[in-house]
């Protein structure tokens, strides 16, 4: 008493088309690129926070990223190349994510009304992602353009000068907040989306992930703002010597007492 065999074979089998696997790949790429960017952001924030351990520490970190410890001499071009790569990932992620956002005012309004009516955290979180994502596209572009065009201008003094004397701090405040929120919320969403939960009971897993998300936001905002504060302090103190580059203390001993002043013409 099964069902007739013409029903047993899905009609779907006849409508297979090439390219039908793209939705899967794109969905995965969106999550993967997002997760990569979030991880990069966190590493970046830690690296940046090296200033809290002193100017030398930050100097070493800079040297490290410029390949000094591998090649014996710093290559700022590495920063340029890496920034280009990040830019590419950002663009990829943005293009993939843009597929999701409202494409018409009608859709926009439907979603807005829906999330207002629902009072539902995850529904609202996505709205946060849309807004922060939109903002990030511009903020990150400016930031990355700086990195690509002036890769050598990273260092305890150079970075601080950029923050204060070149008036970049408002941009960095916005960038920090949006990026930290977007990355943490996005990572939470990716974990739930693919079902990577830190508990057997999905409700418990989701609750834990949400606490982790909030924790990450608080932690990286604190870390980021403290670091930014440190750069600002240095930048203010260094306001009169803009353009001067930092010389690490171990090099200072072998240079004339004039110190920094003597390094550059």
């Amino acid at each position: 008493m099964g069902i007739p065999s013409d029903l047993a074979v899905g009609a779907a089998l006849t409508k297979r088309r090439s390219g039908r696997f793209w939705p899967a790949r794109l969905d995965f790429l969106e999550s993967a690129s997002g997760l990569f960017l979030a991880l990069f952001l966190w590493v970046h924030l830690f690296a940046e926070a090296s200033i809290l351990l002193g100017k030398d520490a930050m100097y070493r970190v800079t040297m490290f990223f410029e390949g000094y410890y591998i090649f014996g001499t710093p290559y700022p071009i590495i920063i340029t190349l890496f920034s280009l790569f990040i830019l590419a990932v950002v663009v990829l992620h943005a293009v993939l994510a843009v597929r999701r956002i409202p494409v018409s005012y009608r859709q926009y309004r439907v979603y807005r009304d829906h999330h207002k009516l629902m009072h539902h955290e995850d529904t609202s979180l996505w709205w946060v992602q849309v807004y922060t994502g939109f903002a990030l596209f511009f903020l990150v572009s400016v930031h990355l353009y700086t990195m690509i065009s002036q890769p050598a201008n990273i260092g305890p003094y150079a970075s601080s000068d950029r923050v204060v004397s070149e008036w970049m701090w408002p941009l960095y405040v916005l960038l920090l907040v949006t990026a930290v929120v977007h990355a943490a919320v996005g990572s939470y969403r990716v974990a739930v989306k693919w079902g990577w939960l830190p508990a057997r009971d999905p409700a418990v897993g989701r609750r834990r992930l949400k606490w982790l998300m909030r924790g990450l936001i608080v932690f990286f905002l604190l870390l980021g703002f403290t670091s930014l504060g440190a750069y600002m302090k240095i930048g203010i103190e260094h306001r009169d010597q803009v353009g001067e580059r930092y010389v690490p203390t171990w090099q200072q001993e072998s240079t004339p007492p004039a110190g920094d002043m003597g390094v550059r013409p």
């Binding site: 939705p23 999701r100 629902m118 539902h120 995850d122 529904t123 989306k193």
Partner: peptide, 11 residues
Amino acid sequence: FGCMTLLGCQD
């Protein structure tokens, strides 16, 4: 792959 994991359904 259209699901955006808003979890309204779940809740």
